[in-house]
Amino acid sequence: MTEEATVLESADIHKIMALLPHRYPFLMVDRIVDIQGDRRAVGIKNVTANEPHFLGHFPSAPVMPGVLIIEGMAQTAGAICTLATGGGTPQLVYFMTIDNAKFRKPVVPGDRLEYHVVQTKKRGNIWRFDCVAKVDEAKVAEATVSAMLVPRDPV
């Protein structure tokens, strides 16, 4: 395991924000509790009632939109890519594909989402991950996602 991976074994929101360009309300990972090099990671999202998407997504019976669950899985995968390429290198991780997405149970305020992400393929700057989202050990969603690392434009 690399030194950077050891640092990220218990990444809080500040470390995640240093790795990912996402910010509120689009940052869908609060913590990464385990990462094993460029192979796998577990990210955490604490779902709260005051998140903006609940204002319009069934306000009387709030349900987290499935696309945001997939986004959280993709962001966890993006943290793996960013860390594996040096963490501070001038690259962005662009989400490319979603395959075999399935939603098993609704996610509601008060749930603690766990994103389990496993790299299945890496060829050049393209990465592929199998992802599962769980609440209380029950699978709530799954998908295969791929991402591409691209140079960040100098600003």
Rank of each mutant, 00 (worst) to 15 (best):
G86D: 09
V67L: 06
F103K: 04
G66C: 08
L55A: 15
D12K: 08
G66R: 13
A18F: 09
H57T: 10
A84P: 13
A11D: 08
G124Y: 01
Y24S: 11
Y24R: 04
R39K: 15
S60D: 13
V29H: 12
V29M: 10
R39C: 12
D111P: 11
V67A: 13
M64V: 00
E114C: 04
A133N: 01
V67W: 10
H53E: 09
A5I: 03
G110V: 14
E114A: 02
G124Q: 07
D99R: 14
R23Q: 13
K102C: 03
A77R: 02
I98M: 07
Q36S: 15
V7M: 04
A41Y: 04
P109W: 05
A79Q: 02
V63P: 00
V67F: 08
V107P: 01
D12Y: 10
G87R: 11
K45I: 07
K134Q: 13
Q91A: 04
F103R: 12
E71Q: 11
A74L: 06
L20Q: 11
K45R: 13
I70K: 02
T89V: 14
I126E: 02
Q75E: 12
V135M: 04
E71A: 07
E4F: 14
V118Q: 15
T85G: 14
P90M: 00
H57E: 09
V29C: 08
N46R: 09
G37A: 06
L27M: 12
G86N: 11
K45S: 07
I16P: 05
G43Y: 07
P21H: 11
L27C: 10
R40T: 03
A5T: 14
G110P: 13
F26Q: 12
T97L: 03
L113V: 15
F26M: 15
